[in-house]
Design a protein around this nucleic acid. Structure first.
Lengths: 216, 216, 216, 216
DNA sequence: AATGAATGAGATTTCATTCAT
DNA sequence: GATGAATGAAATCTCATTCAT
């Protein structure tokens, strides 16, 4: 956690620091992130950094917390209501993807941030991800349960496999989005992504098999 | 590319070096990999390293090449034949997963290596992955084409979405495997993984939807 | 010397500061002492420190002065009377050791403080110790003079050597005490220390030699 | 322990480094010692230091080892023979002091080194001193035993008290010597020290008391 | 006078790469 | 070609002291 000193700072300086942190952590995984770049970007003296944070890890964890909170708030507001009465699994999932798209457009660095976080491979990750992962798992897990309960999903389906599936899809979609937008080749083609989402959902709903053909 | 000097080395020394490299790169992502550990593990003098390789990146790229070739050879041998006459999409895919399992058991460091590589996020990755990804894409792409051509897959399915799906699945499965085996809790339970593969393939074939219900 | 500002402070705050200083300097030698710890312990703002003291050395010297004064006052009160009529060298010395024991028990940090001071090896030490040493020298020196004058001590004895002897003894005894009590193994065994003091005094009085045998 | 690299160094460079280390550690206690000063004095690049030693502590311990070994060898050679047949406690002790004087004159930095070491107050000290202290204790302890056995010492004397006494004396004498010579006021007055030694031994043998006067 | 943020010099440590033998 | 010592740039972190409010 940042020191009290950090929270006492004028808003403007705090903003500069957090922006520099988000920039850094969305460009480099933790182990390659670098205090010097951050303080230069934020235009604060080296010593100040250590009056605000214990070390880079401290800032990292805080940055992730902030990002996760923001994301949760964002999704909470936009997805809310879709989970109450008249819930439909695929509609909700489609909505989730669309909100993801909005979020990605509004906070592109945060998307990259979360993406790098997921790929961290150290114990650090475990430390930081605990909350976030639980929440995401829960969202998908609950959706699956509801879907089955409401007869919208095939009750034969293995829940673990289904969960893994959906998470993999989520990651793949995010990667795809980042790859597409990074080159700058495709200028955020709304229609293109919508179509793509529908294609994915179609597969998720009905599978690749021809008229429900099963595995041998 | 390594220097000619490297290729002139006695087999035994070359082997020691490559094993040390694989060990290093399967334990640490490139940016944290460390020449000192490699030369100590390989028991070669520091100066020699620079007579064999231009720098660490040189060794990294070469190591990846070797690993990818080995993997391709492995899969080529084991999967061959399943792609000829009597091809069945899901059977082949199931077979692919099983071979992946064998491969993971036989060369666990190579699995970790590939896994770290995928998570690299630098331009380096682009450089190295180019070939490998193309190859994997091709395998899945070809399979999809055949599957459709032979009427085993739903021709309505969007090829790009399907490809993404299969790659996501592949990653998810690998992660799952690594997570399961790393703790050492589950001692490579053959049956367990087989069942899991079948569950996943079931979803891939028939989707999550109940009795083929579509997206609203 | 502290600033006038310091002396104008409310008693309670001044006390907190001095206690923090004594704690710090009894745990760390000057060069490792740390302003941050002191101001945190004393709960005063960083800037205040520099309004009360010029720098850490200023506080250090003042703390030592206070401690020495306190010690002198303590000893003055308790030992007084033993130096007047009916003075006996060894009885007084024994009494001195006993008072030392009381002092150590009552102000253990001050004992540690003095002990660290003695071990300082900088010019700082010279600066600070001047007064204190002179005073101690004087106590022992006066005692020796009286002892000789009253025919209680061997007049042949070299005064410088005797002084050194007694100081060495003093240090040795203090070290012994600190070592014994630090581990916490021996719970301040009154009797044990009394016995030890008597043994030491016995040697000091009669020497190690057998039946007053001299040096060859 | 230094690395093999250090021991491979040309003698001249190794000597420069050890001299710089001895100089540093005889001027500053460990916690104030400073790598920068050492490498500047020894004229080696910063990086080299870390190829020779793990850190400053590594060098410190090694320096102490070297110094202690040298001292032991020195004393071993010079004191030998005095402990065999015809042993006389006070003669031997006198000889020990004289050898100390010689040693101090020949290796003044090593004397200062040992003196600082004794005053270290950290666990580091424990680590380093273990051997040295044991040996010194043993020397004095054995001497005391022999002295009693041969009827040269008063058997009533408490061994622990006597040991403490002699160690205190040793330290006091060393301090006295360093203080005397440092100012440069007294130019190593041979006669003066000899006389002082005799005075001390006289007290040690016969005590301060007048004609064996006891403690009350 | 009180406060606490600002600052930067200086310390340790790491490590890829070069270079002399 | 083999070897391993040399090198210094760069990174992290600490902390006494100053300064603006």
């Amino acid at each position: 956690m940042p020191t009290q000193t950090f929270f006492n700072l004028p808003e403007e300086k705090r903003r500069r620091i957090m922006e520099a942190a988000i920039k850094e952590f969305s460009e480099y995984p933790f182990e390659q992130a670098n205090i010097t770049r951050i303080i230069e970007e934020a235009k604060i003296p080296r010593g100040s950094f250590y009056q605000y944070f214990e070390n880079l890890k401290d800032l990292y964890k805080y940055t992730m917390d902030v990002a996760v909170d923001l994301k949760i708030k964002y999704f909470g507001e936009k997805v809310l209501g879709f989970q109450g009465e008249g819930f439909d699994f695929f509609t909700t999932l489609r909505h989730l993807f669309l909100v993801s798209l909005d979020f990605a457009r509004e906070y592109p660095e945060l998307l990259a941030l979360g993406n790098l976080l997921i790929k961290e491979k150290t114990e650090l990750q475990a430390e930081v991800m605990k909350d976030q992962n639980l929440k995401t798992e829960n969202v998908y897990g609950e959706m699956l349960q509801k879907g089955v309960a409401l007869g919208q999903l095939n009750p034969q389906v293995d829940p673990t496999a289904a969960l893994l599936f959906m998470q993999a899809l989520n990651h793949a979609f995010t990667d795809y989005y980042i790859a597409m937008t990074k080159n700058g080749t495709v200028p955020l083609d709304e229609v293109h992504f919508m179509k793509f989402i529908d294609n994915i959902l179609e597969i998720l709903a009905n599978g690749l098999g021809n008229s429900g053909g099963g595995v041998s």
